[in-house]
Design a protein around this nucleic acid. Structure first.
Length: 252
DNA sequence: GAACAGGTGAAGT
DNA sequence: ACTTCACCTGTT
């Protein structure tokens, strides 16, 4: 839920969201995750999207005895990294630069509700994330309504490139290094955004995005962390750290 | 109303 | 190679 901007809490405690063109309601019942829809849809979509087959508890045994890492692990217990669509992840993290989470959300929501396809789920209407082609068909001034400032140009240029044939999904099969370099060739994508897309959009769990919160937390606790020592759990460690640092406002 | 926000890229040392 | 700054705009 942390790095995903499209699941909204509902009055009854459940969450409503859209992913990969499908809508669902999710809630917790007796400590277990429940997802609306039929078993076929679960197998096809949600099982991999919510990353339900990974052993997140492996970190309990692997996490070094470093104060802040242990605190983060205890605090964020239960977190999962969602397998977002690469294009949606790319846009979301382009919007995220120098922005607060509520504003990122509102930019994405206005984009989706204006351009996405409507999907009904249990009486609610939600909207899919617009494809690159849908966005590429518009001009910069057409897109002014999303109020994303200078980031709109980045997203429009990326949309034109992806709609023109750049295959983001194909990067899943490449090495993290190759995919990172490819992502950083987009205007407005630097190391941090690229690493977020690697982790949340391309399933590269060795990616460890370093943002201001991670930087501050590590420096306040004067902790030395070598992401590569975590192997394919680096991204999950990063999520624990981020969530803890952000919630505690470490360094503020 | 200034300062800042889950960065980036260009220009300046 | 390291430091500084502008970039759009909503919130604090």
């Amino acid at each position: 839920m942390r790095k995903c901007f499209r699941w909204r809490p509902q009055p009854d405690g459940s969450y409503l969201g859209v992913a990969l063109g499908q809508a669902a309601r999710i809630w917790e019942e007796g400590g277990r995750l429940c997802i609306s829809g039929d078993p076929g849809q679960y197998e096809r979509l949600w099982r991999s999207y919510f990353d339900l087959d990974r052993d997140y508890d492996a970190l309990d045994r692997m996490m070094p005895d470093v104060d802040i890492l242990q605190k983060s692990l205890a605090y964020g217990k239960g977190l999962h990294i969602f397998a977002q669509d690469p294009w949606e992840a790319l846009c979301s993290f382009l919007f995220s630069q120098c922005n607060h989470i509520p504003r990122i959300r509102s930019i994405i929501e206005s984009l989706c509700s204006a351009l996405g396809d409507p999907i009904t789920c249990q009486g609610e209407t939600l909207y899919s994330f617009p494809s690159a082609a849908q966005i590429a068909a518009l001009s910069l001034s057409d897109l002014a309504f999303i109020r994303a400032g200078y980031r709109t140009e980045y997203v429009l240029a990326a949309a034109q490139r992806v709609a023109g044939g750049f295959d983001l999904n194909a990067l899943k099969r490449e090495s993290s290094e190759y995919a990172r370099t490819a992502l950083m060739s987009f205007d407005g994508i630097g190391r941090k955004v690229a690493d977020c897309v690697l982790l949340c959009g391309l399933g590269k769990f060795d990616s460890f995005p370093v943002d201001t919160w991670i930087r501050k937390a590590l420096s306040v606790y004067s902790a030395q962390v070598d992401p590569s020592s975590f192997g394919d759990y680096a991204g999950i460690v990063q999520q624990y750290l981020f969530y803890y640092a952000r919630s505690m406002k470490i360094g503020k």
